[in-house]
Simulated assay, not measured.
Amino acid sequence: MAWTKYQLFLAGLMLTTGSINTLSAKWADMFSAKGCKDSPEHTFSHPFVQAVGMFLGELSCLVVFHMLLCHDRRRPEPKMNTGQSFNPLLFLPPALCDMTATSIMYVALNMTSASSFQMLRGAVIIFTGLLSVAFLGRRLVASQWTGIFVTILGLVMVGLADFISGNKDDSHKLSDVVTGDLLIIMAQVIAAVQMVLEEKFVYKHDVHPLRAVGTEGFFGFFILSLLLIPFFYIPVGSFSNNPRHVLEDALDAFCQIGHNPMIVLALLGNTVSIAFFNFAGISVTKEISATTRMVLDSLRTVVIWVVSLALGWEQFHGLQVLGFIVLLVGAALYNGLHRPLLAKIPCCANMVEEEEGNPAERARLLDEGRVQEET
């Protein structure tokens, strides 16, 4: 079935904004400017300030939800399903997970390349699958276990590519690259906990996706904004790249923005893109399919990699390409993208039917599950 112009627009919007989200965050990290009190010029290394901007983008989804709700109520026959009433505090635990994982990933993005950052986020499949078995009682089928093991292999390849490039690339020290990669994988453990919490406690209340994203953004934005105050006084030594070597120096960030307004453009790109990316992702799931959304989310890794190469942000490494392909295969196996092909083969049709189990339940989880990217 041919896609409509609106569906093509949504797919393009998701692919574009998803790519801009990571690229703009990396772009901000590459700026240098003077800080407060005429401190020497230094790189813009403020991951927690960037995370606040990302949550502001998610919070805007709540504004969009209420705008759509007001517009729908003006119709003679309202059609918008707002879901059941719920306690907003249900979103606090997953929001805290989202806040922690996002902050760690922005720290890691300072240490490694944008493409490796995006590829290594595929590790979320491993931990989501394992936690789903442990805490949700889910039974993974053979192809999902295979997808997990293939994903592990792909992560090893990407990690080796970074290890090799770290010896040749002066822009990132080898120790920083390895630490950054490990931090990204650590963040995926927390992101997986977030997904399991959302599935167990949140989505059973049939909350509208825009409302879910916006409510988590609300908690993340205000909590992390308040945490910037104690972060300003917590010394972390050489772990931090800001002049005072504290966990986060928000004042230094604003001073650098004042000396180099281009940083605002990068931060604004991150904030706006995450809002449109969430909207486009939800709309793609609704208008086309959740499978298409997963494919587009994987394709943005290619876009990020190609743009990074074109801009000279990183060098070409064949092992990284191979690792990406293996990660793509692992994600396809875990998410069942191979099943339509196997279903056409007579000898494999029965195996596909057994693997699918309860298709209605799987479709519900795919439709309601929010792809992590927000970064």
Results as ranks from 00 to 15, higher is better:
Ala2Gly: 04
Trp3His: 13
Gln7Lys: 15
Gln7Cys: 08
Gln7Tyr: 12
Phe9Thr: 13
Leu10Arg: 10
Met14Arg: 10
Thr16His: 03
Ser19Cys: 03
Ser19Trp: 02
Ser19Pro: 05
Ala25Trp: 06
Met30Ile: 03
Met30Val: 01
Lys34Trp: 10
Glu41Cys: 07
His42Thr: 05
Pro47Leu: 00
Pro47Met: 02
Ala51Thr: 04
Leu56Thr: 13
Leu56Glu: 10
Val63Met: 07
Leu68Ser: 06
Arg73Lys: 15
Arg74Ile: 01
Asn81Leu: 01
Gly83Ala: 10
Gln84Cys: 03
Ser85Gly: 05
Ser85Glu: 15
Asn87Val: 01
Leu92Trp: 11
Met99Leu: 15
Ile104Gly: 07
Leu109Glu: 01
Ser113Phe: 03
Leu120Tyr: 02
Arg121Tyr: 00
Ser132Ile: 03
Ala134Gln: 13
Arg139Asp: 04
Leu140Tyr: 08
Ala142Tyr: 11
Ser143Gly: 02
Trp145Lys: 14
Thr146Trp: 09
Leu155Tyr: 01
Val158Arg: 04
Asp162Cys: 06
Phe163Trp: 07
Ile164Lys: 01
His172Lys: 06
His172Asp: 05
Ser175Gln: 13
Gly180Arg: 10
Met186Asp: 11
Ile190Glu: 14
Ile190Ala: 09
Ala192Thr: 06
Gln194Ala: 00
Leu197His: 11
Lys200Ser: 05
Lys204Leu: 11
Ala212Ser: 15
Ala212His: 02
Val213Ile: 14
Gly217Lys: 12
Gly220Lys: 08
Phe221Thr: 14
Leu228His: 04
Pro230Cys: 07
Ile234Gly: 07
Pro235Asp: 08
Pro235Gln: 06
Gly237Cys: 05
Val246Gln: 11
Val246His: 07
Ala250Met: 14
Asn260His: 13
Pro261Asn: 05
Ala266Tyr: 08
Gly269Ser: 01
Ala275Gln: 15
Phe276Ala: 13
Phe276Lys: 08
Phe277Arg: 15
Phe279Ala: 05
Gly281Cys: 00
Gly281Arg: 06
Lys286Met: 03
Ser289Gln: 05
Thr292Ile: 04
Arg293Val: 00
Asp297Glu: 08
Arg300Ile: 00
Arg300Asp: 00
Thr301Arg: 15
Thr301Ile: 09
Thr301Glu: 09
Val303Met: 13
Val303Tyr: 10
Leu309Gln: 08
Leu311Ile: 09
Gly312Val: 05
Gln315Tyr: 02
Gly323Thr: 02
Val326Lys: 13
Val326Thr: 03
Leu333Gly: 12
Tyr334Gly: 12
Gly336Asp: 04
Leu337His: 14
Leu341Met: 01
Cys348Val: 02
Asn350Phe: 02
Met351Gln: 12
Glu354Gln: 14
Glu356Leu: 10
Ala360Ser: 12
Arg362Asn: 11
Arg362Gly: 07
Ala363Asn: 13
Asp367Cys: 03
Asp367Gln: 13
Glu368Trp: 09
Gly369Pro: 00
